[in-house]
């Protein structure tokens, strides 16, 4: 139990070991630990960010899908509308054409009828003149009775 030079020796050894630890042991180990801590923290943050990004992307995809569906529906709608419109237009055009054809046919018919009537009238004039001649037994001056005949013909 003697206190002796061992005390001094231990103090010197203590100083040397503490110095050694301070110089060569503590800094590299702590640096490695801090670096790893940073790395893990970064990794976790990256994972967080990735999952957040994924969520965003999913949201975006859903939105895109919705948009696309809406757009498609719009296009189909427009196409339907356009088709209807075309049908409508075609119908209108057909009706118009039919009307036009009918009108021209009617005009022709009228023309023909008029012509026939004119022909008939002129023939009626001649016939009535001939009849009257026969009845009267004399010739009727065509010129003298022209207005009479004309009047008759127009009453037909």
């Amino acid at each position: 139990m003697n206190i002796n030079l061992t005390l001094i020796g231990q103090m010197v050894a203590f100083v040397i070991f503490v110095w050694f630890c301070m110089k060569y042991v503590w800094p590299p180990i702590l640096a490695a630990m801090a670096e790893r801590e940073q790395k893990i923290a970064d990794g976790l943050a990256a994972a967080d960010r990735a999952s957040h990004d994924l969520e965003l992307a999913q949201e975006k995809a859903v939105e895109r899908l919705k948009e696309a569906k809406e757009e498609a529906a719009g296009i189909i709608d427009a196409a339907n509308k356009r088709a209807n419109q075309l049908v409508e237009e075609a119908k209108d055009a057909a009706v118009a054409e039919a009307d036009r054809v009918k009108a021209s046919a009617q005009a022709e018919i009228e023309l023909e009828a008029n012509r026939a009537r004119e022909q008939l009238r002129s023939q009626v004039a001649a016939l009535s003149l001939a009849g009257a001649e026969k009845v009267l037994g004399a010739a009727i001056d065509q010129n003298a009775h022209a207005d009479l005949v004309e009047k008759l013909a127009s009453e037909l």
Partner: peptide
Amino acid sequence: CWLFTRVAKKASS
């Protein structure tokens, strides 16, 4: 010192 120096050399991130 020897043990911890070895660890210090091996320690990485």
